[in-house]
Design a protein around this nucleic acid. Structure first.
Length: 272
DNA sequence: ACTATTTCCTGGATGC
DNA sequence: TGCATCCAGGAAATAG
């Protein structure tokens, strides 16, 4: 399930492989779900453009495109991988795998393909290159802006961390891992968390995200990067997916509860 | 203005 | 072996 570190890893890999290439044409599947913009709009925005760069914004992968007409025109192709989405760069002759919803033909003879069995992923374009999303990048925020995002909320801190309108990019795994490192239970109401605990929490979030990026993300179920390589951060998980296993610090069995329909893992001894 | 719950979607795991 | 059921979860939609 791609969260910030996985999306960052994928975006970097894609940048390395497709920057400078030209998108000649687009094929879009019949299933409409993965298209946030209309098929016509997507085709019009991306066909005959050069990929200038690829970057991550929250959990989105953003392709910066430039059209070379008399006047250079900016546009963006935006991909959200959802749960099971993948972007594959391969030769045009490579077999088309099941659940392929979009194919971008590149001038280099390769193709950029979007594959997503569960169809939770989304494709869209910003024709003026002005894609933006609410929420602040967790790796860029400072503590003075971080705390007011959460302080006034009665919702469990875990739910608040998953709210992309506040911080963008943190998902279920990294929320659990950050809360464990900060010693805060996922059900704690955001409004009851002390200032010093928020300082710890922000430090934990940044630490976890940076470590995960360095290891290429976490491979759970079917996550692989654009090269088909798995990440290694799952080996560093201290609570996520460890229900019943002993806490690495105090040996108390890790507990799993459901918050807002999401499984949440924590140590009942180390987290208050 | 918030918060909580439901919905979408399929493959893999589990149970009988 | 086969069939039904459950579960994973990001984000939008809906309800309160």
């Amino acid at each position: 399930m791609p969260e910030l570190p996985e999306v960052e890893t994928i975006a970097r890999g894609l940048a390395r492989r497709v920057t400078g290439d030209v998108i000649e044409s687009v094929w879009l599947g019949k299933k409409p779900e993965p298209l946030k913009s209309s098929a016509r709009e997507i085709a019009a925005a991306v066909e005959s453009t050069r990929v200038v760069s690829v970057r991550r914004i929250g959990k989105h992968i953003v392709f910066e495109l430039q059209r070379h007409t008399q006047k250079p025109r900016q546009a963006q192709f935006i991909v959200h991988l959802g749960m099971t989405g993948r972007l594959q760069v391969c030769h045009a002759q490579a077999e088309i795998s099941k659940h392929t919803h979009a194919i971008l033909k590149l001038a280099s003879g390769r193709e950029l393909r979007f594959i997503d069995p569960r169809r939770f992923g989304r494709l869209s374009v910003a024709r003026r290159g002005d894609f933006d999303t609410v929420g602040i990048e967790p790796l860029e925020i400072d503590v003075d802006r971080f705390i007011p995002l959460f302080r006034g909320r009665k919702t469990p801190i875990k739910s608040a961390l998953l709210n992309q309108k506040l911080l963008r990019g943190v998902g279920n795994i990294y929320a659990d891992e950050s809360l464990f490192r900060a010693g805060i239970r996922p059900r704690r109401r955001a409004s009851t968390i002390r200032h010093d605990q928020y300082v710890k929490l922000l430090a934990a979030i940044k630490e976890v995200l940076k470590e995960a990026i360095a290891l290429g993300g976490s491979s759970i179920s079917d996550y692989v990067d654009d090269n088909g390589d798995e990440g290694f951060f799952q080996l560093q998980h201290r609570v996520y997916g460890r229900e019943g296993e002993p806490c690495l610090f105090c040996k108390t069995p890790i507990r799993r509860i459901v918050i807002a329909g999401r499984s949440s893992h924590y140590c009942p001894t180390c987290q208050k």
